[in-house]
Design a protein around this nucleic acid. Structure first.
Length: 682
RNA sequence: GGGCCUGUAGCUCAGUUGGUUAGAGCAGGGGACUCAUAAUCCCUUUGUCGGCGGUUCGAGUCCGUCCAGGCCUACCA
């Protein structure tokens, strides 16, 4: 075997502001599998993580629930760790960015930046919420676009005209935190002049070994083709974080201290085990691997290497970047019940099933992974229960009393083939191409079952003369099974443990897959894995839906807690008279035809009937929210006397009434049973 | 607007540096078996490899272009 590597692995630090869900788990399960693989290969490998605990959002959450930030993050940390443990994600240390270790390390980094002369102070003018007493990040500001005047625009760009601008230029800005009009304030911020590391970053990102190629290209095209802007790493108080020692009243921005949290967690690990911290972060023979989602790419591929470089620590050997999770082809949705919390999954289903399913779908590219619930059920049942576990369950009891044969019988080369496949499987694991690894392993199972089939042990056992033959066949089957269990151990540690119990020989090393077990006793076979029932999957989705509904209801009950956001986004219009109102002729109409408009992103072409032969053609911006086929036949409320308007695709002779900000969030007005097309609404 | 990625059987995907009649699993159809968690085994149907054009003796694989989908576009987590 190759020499013993020293590998430090991390997953992204989950933000301490919400529960772990199936989307998070893609990353933690992926990382955990990789780590367990490395450990099984005999390498020295540690897996570190921590909660990411700083920033405005945490402050707001603590405030809302009436506890201190420390209490808030302690509660979340406990939940997170419980959920990870539930899925067999095993960290060597789980820390927090709000730890003394992290503070000390932040100081060290900061000192290094100061000494390198990379820190610069500059005044930043920002909108300020007087009521809450905080500076407003762009996303907490809404108002009208300064270019086109479109209302309800957030932050620094307009989704109507595409203009980008500073939040300060927004017309009639409103703080989305308090609903008040923000004032303009100036504060000093500290910046890191990262451009001075441009050449280094160019070389590091483009070297071809540390990043996936699509990521390297992306960085090259977006950031490295122009001077890197200074990175704003401080926030004025109030802010939940670490106060910068040489700049009282200023705090490190959450993204400054978050990645340092990887190291703080290492520090805790070392303090606990007596290991040498520098051995992990300064020894050039140590490999550092970060697993992250594509959303935090630039922090990990530009800022983080720059920080490590300046502070003279090891650079990452590889940043493994994965895509997001979709469920049944769509983004996870609370309304559809596909936003499943880790906790909810565990109530209904076996975590091993998810580990295997993810493994069977993961590759080393930055693609999204789809959890197809139907496929999930059949794949896990067929592969794991039907093919793999079945090998043991169909043969173990035949040799329960006599144990395995003393010498390994002739199996036609099956075991050897499996041993030979070990390297290819290991390569796939190493490259994070778990999908390939799983396919290779299942090929072994697909060869093993026909072996059992053709040797018919169930017939042999009835013939007292052929007991030796029976023992031979079962010895082969159980060894083939164990070989598979070894290869699957990174994904399914529990199955491996149950195999240990069955055959009495612990699986501790990958190399064991090359040597068959002989002469050992065979214990009574115990079920290793239950089939997934479709009803359990349904129940999980149902419960997720209910959780969402309950949360929404609770929000309502707790003192009319509907968000003030809609009114903030669109304040009430000027008062009108009854006569004014009567000018608008609202009518019930039936959608008799609904069709897509070629070349239109948002529009559907609707033919509305007002009863009799009276019809209107209306173009409505609801394409992203409704399917045409679902609309046909439905009653809607339309503005029937609106002046026709010529649009690019034809004339629109009215307007459908609907609420919501637009895009996918459009909610058409319905009308109760009994209304007739043509009736006026008043 | 710019950039990146993807588009191969009903579904999920393999297809290595361009080379013979394009593959696997699942699903579907037919049969066998009964040891096993209605598991397993055997046989079997299906593809203008997104469209068009080009390079080549030869392209799913390279180039161009168009179409569709996804994602990104730093001082937002």
């Amino acid at each position: 075997m190759t020499e013993r590597r020293k590998i430090l692995v991390t997953s992204a630090l989950p933000y301490a502001n919400g529960p772990i869900h199936l989307g998070h788990l893609v990353e933690y399960i992926q990382t955990d599998i990789w780590v367990r693989f490395q450990k099984l290969r005999g390498h020295e490998c540690i897996y570190l993580c921590a909660d990411d605990t700083h920033g405005t959002a945490i402050m707001m959450s603590a405030q809302r629930t009436g506890c201190t930030e420390e209490e808030w993050i302690a509660g979340i940390s406990e939940e997170h760790q419980r959920d990870f443990a539930g899925f067999g994600v095993e960290f060597d240390n789980y820390g927090s960015t709000n730890s003394p270790e992290n503070y000390e390390l932040c100081k060290e980094f900061w000192q290094a930046f100061r000494e390198a002369g990379l820190v610069k102070e500059e005044a930043v003018t920002q909108l300020f919420d007087e009521e809450k007493g905080i500076f407003l990040a762009d996303r907490f500001v809404s108002g009208s676009c300064p270019k086109c005047g479109a209302e309800e625009q957030y932050g620094d760009s307009c989704d109507q005209c595409g203009a980008t601008y500073s939040a300060r230029e927004i017309i009639n800005p409103v703080s989305t935190l308090s609903g008040t009009t923000p004032t303009v304030k100036t504060a000093d911020h500290l910046f890191i002049q990262i451009e001075q590391l441009h050449d280094f970053l160019e070389e590091w990102t483009q070297s071809g070994t540390h990043l996936q190629t699509e990521i390297a290209n992306y960085l090259k095209g977006h950031f490295l083709n122009e001077p890197l802007r200074d990175w704003d790493v401080s926030r004025p108080q109030p802010y939940f974080g670490f106060e910068i020692p040489d700049a009282p009243g200023h705090f490190w921005f959450v993204w400054f201290d978050a990645p340092i949290g990887y190291m703080a967690s290492t520090k805790q690990y070392c303090d606990r085990t007596g290991e040498d911290f520098d051995g992990w972060w300064k020894d050039p023979n140590t490999e550092i691997h970060h697993f992250i989602g594509k959303d935090i790419t630039y922090f990990h591929t530009l800022f983080w290497p720059a920080m490590l470089k300046v502070a003279n620590f090891n650079l990452p050997e590889k940043i493994h970047i994965h895509g997001f999770l979709t469920v049944d082809g769509k983004k996870m949705s609370k309304r559809d019940g596909t936003f499943v919390k880790a906790e909810t999954f565990l109530k209904h289903l076996n975590p091993a099933a998810l580990r295997y399913y993810y493994a069977s779908k993961l590759n080393n590219r930055v693609e999204d992974l789809d959890l197809n619930l139907k496929e999930f059920t059949t794949k896990v049942n067929t592969d794991l229960v039907g093919k793999v576990v079945n090998l043991a369950s169909r043969t173990a009891k035949f040799v329960q009393e006599i144990g395995l044969a003393e010498t390994y019988p002739d199996d036609g080369g099956l075991f050897q083939q499996g041993a030979d496949a070990g390297n290819a499987i290991a390569d796939a694991y190493e490259a994070c191409d778990f999908n390939r690894a799983m396919r290779l392993i299942m090929e072994l199972a697909d060869r093993a079952n026909p072996y059992v089939e053709s040797h018919e042990p169930w017939k042999l056992r009835k013939d007292p003369e052929r007991q030796q033959e029976l023992q031979a066949v079962c010895t082969v089957a159980l060894n083939l099974f164990r070989q598979i269990a070894i290869y699957l151990k990174p994904v399914l540690p529990e199955i491996a443990e149950k195999t240990d119990a069955l055959l009495g020989e612990p699986i501790t090393d990958w190399a064991q897959a090359a040597t068959p077990l002989t002469g050992s006793p065979v214990a009574k076979f115990e079920h290793m894995m239950k089939r997934i029932e479709e009803k359990d999957v349904d129940a999980m989705i149902e419960e997720s839906k209910e959780e969402n509904a309950a949360a929404a209801e609770a929000a309502n009950e707790t003192q009319f807690a509907d968000s003030p956001q809609p009114l903030i986004d669109e304040p009430l219009a000027e008062e009108i008279t009854f006569d004014d109102f009567m000018k608008v002729d609202l009518r019930v109409a039936r959608v008799v035809k609904a069709e897509h408009v070629e070349e239109a992103n948002k529009l559907l072409k609707l033919t509305l009937s007002l009863g009799g032969d009276e019809t209107r053609q209306v173009f409505a911006g609801i394409k992203k929210a409704y399917n045409p086929e679902d609309l046909e036949g439905r009653l809607v409320v339309m503005v029937a006397n609106l002046a026709p308007r010529k649009m690019r695709f034809g004339v629109s002779e009215g307007m459908i009434t609907a609420a919501g900000p637009g895009g996918e969030e459009v909610f058409m007005l319905g009308i109760d049973e009994g209304a007739q097309p043509g009736q006026r609404v008043h």
